[in-house]
């Protein structure tokens, strides 16, 4: 028996729904990561998990624990802020690394660099 069992049904239903939505979005993202053909398609897949996948699960936790502890529990927001701020940085850098490597190898289907290298890439 956990304290979560004391939730009333009207609150347990949205918490359960948010948990299901969040985990489903994350697994769809991971499925896309495993399934899609090209790298530039695959880079879109994990953003499902990092946007509403994370947000839904954090919201579920906020709702549930605010009821259990009888005060507003919002420390989950820190994880949300952390994920929201850090994911674009990693995604951009991985994307740029892939672009750089593909251009260096002269792979087909990659747009050419707009300028010669040097002074670049700091943006």
């Amino acid at each position: 028996m956990t304290p979560l069992d004391s939730l009333p049904l009207w609150l347990a239903a949205p918490v359960a729904a948010l948990l299901v939505i969040g985990s489903t979005l994350t697994v769809l993202g991971a499925f896309g990561l495993a399934h899609l053909r090209s790298f530039y398609d695959r880079i879109h897949a994990p953003t499902l998990g990092t946007s509403w996948g994370t947000a839904a699960i954090l919201l579920a936790s906020i709702l549930a624990y605010s009821w259990v502890q009888e005060r507003l529990v919002v420390h989950e927001i820190v994880v949300g802020i952390c994920v929201m701020v850090t994911t674009p940085v990693t995604t951009m850098l991985i994307g740029r690394a892939a672009l750089h490597r593909d251009r260096k190898e002269g792979a087909a289907g990659v747009p050419p660099s707009r300028r010669a290298r040097g002074g670049a890439a700091k943006g």
């Binding site: 069992d5 939730l7 347990a12 299901v20 994350t26 697994v27 993202g29 991971a30 990561l33 549930a64």
Partner: peptide
């Protein structure tokens, strides 16, 4: 509500474990 949450938490854990496996496969 206890059963509902049990089902949702088990589903979420299973799905996230599958997602981890898929990412590991990639």
């Amino acid at each position: 509500s206890a059963t509902l949450l049990w089902i949702a938490l088990t589903y979420a854990q299973t799905m996230l474990a599958i997602a981890g496996c898929l990412a590991t496969w990639r």
